[in-house]
Simulated scan of single mutants.
Amino acid sequence: MKAAVIVFPASNCDRDIADALHRATGRPPAMIWHGDSDLPKLDLIVIPGGFSYGDYLRAGAMAAHSPVLQEIKARAEQGVAVLGVCNGFQVLTESGLLPGALMRNASLKYIHRSVPLRVEGTNSIFTARYKPDQTINLPIAHHDGNYFADKDTLRRLEGEGQVAFRYLDNPNGSMNDIAGLYNDRRNVLGMMPHPERVSDPALGSIHGKPMFDALVEALS
């Protein structure tokens, strides 16, 4: 599996997810600067967490206009897998690769803790190693993780089974408890929790490891 991690000014989880991918695949992923638009042949593109461009304007809004995003959109349309975590999820919504928006947490406070999630389905390359309705615990670390979409969009997401993960204690006010969702082809996943932070026993948990194992199995 050939993977790449996109690096923006103020990305701060790019090395974390690169380490998780290295452990899963046995090879380091390519680290692509956001200003580059000439991507190599890839099976997986990851947009990591952090505070791209310092979250000026809106979280992910400026990163969504970086040169590399046009190429990521084109690759996604071709079926290449794209994973956006935390700020990466924000970038995916701001760029139109996923519907809806991530707004300020309902508490108006930054939240950093482990939260319980329910895996809503296993019929994707990202979740095939989990069990249906499995409860997992992943860490969150965000100030703008409150997922919002209009009623018609929510109805479509729910009806088409595009919700990937759902909060069991909704820490940020997200509509329908949405913690992560797919595009309609299920090759793009955006999620606020961080699977890379619990992908090795040395990190205290491996609840995120099945995601990386599933991707290797599907894309190798």
Rank of each mutant, 00 (worst) to 15 (best):
A63T: 10
A59I: 07
V68W: 03
G60Q: 04
F51C: 02
G49P: 00
S114I: 15
R75K: 13
E71D: 10
A63L: 11
I47V: 03
R118A: 14
H112D: 13
I47N: 03
L44N: 01
R58F: 04
S66D: 15
I72L: 05
A59C: 14
R118K: 14
L44M: 10
E94S: 07
I47A: 12
G88R: 05
A81W: 01
M62K: 13
A76T: 00
Q90V: 00
G60W: 00
L108A: 15
V68K: 05
G79N: 10
I47C: 04
L83K: 13
A59S: 14
G60M: 01
M62S: 09
S66P: 13
A63C: 09
V85M: 06
H65P: 09
A64P: 05
F51Q: 01
G84I: 02
R58K: 12
Y53V: 02
A63Y: 11
L97N: 04
G50L: 09
T93N: 08
R118D: 15
A101R: 04
L102F: 00
D55C: 06
A61F: 10
F51I: 11
L98T: 05
V46E: 08
Y53T: 04
A59R: 09
V80H: 05
A106C: 06
K109W: 06
T93F: 11
L98V: 00
L83D: 06
E71W: 09
A59G: 13
Q70M: 09
P48F: 05
V91T: 03
S52M: 06
G79Y: 07
L97S: 02
V82Y: 03
D43H: 07
L102I: 02
V85I: 13
I47W: 02
L102M: 10
G49T: 02
G60C: 07
L108S: 15
V119E: 08
I72T: 11
D55V: 05
F51Y: 11
R113F: 06
Q90T: 01
M103W: 05
A81T: 11
P99R: 02
M103F: 01
L92V: 01
S66Q: 11
G84A: 08
R58A: 09
L44D: 01
P48M: 07
G50F: 08
A59Y: 05
L83Y: 01
G88C: 02
A59F: 07
V68Y: 04
D43L: 11
A64N: 12
F51A: 10
G96T: 03
R58V: 11
G88S: 04
N105W: 15
V115N: 13
M103P: 00
F51K: 10
C86L: 08
P99T: 03
V82F: 02
R118F: 03
A63F: 13
T93E: 03
L102G: 01
R104S: 04
Q78C: 11
V85Q: 08
V68M: 13
A64M: 12
G50V: 12
G100A: 10
C86A: 03
G88A: 09
A63H: 12
E94I: 08
Y110L: 15
Y56V: 11
A76G: 07
V80C: 10
M62P: 01
K73S: 15
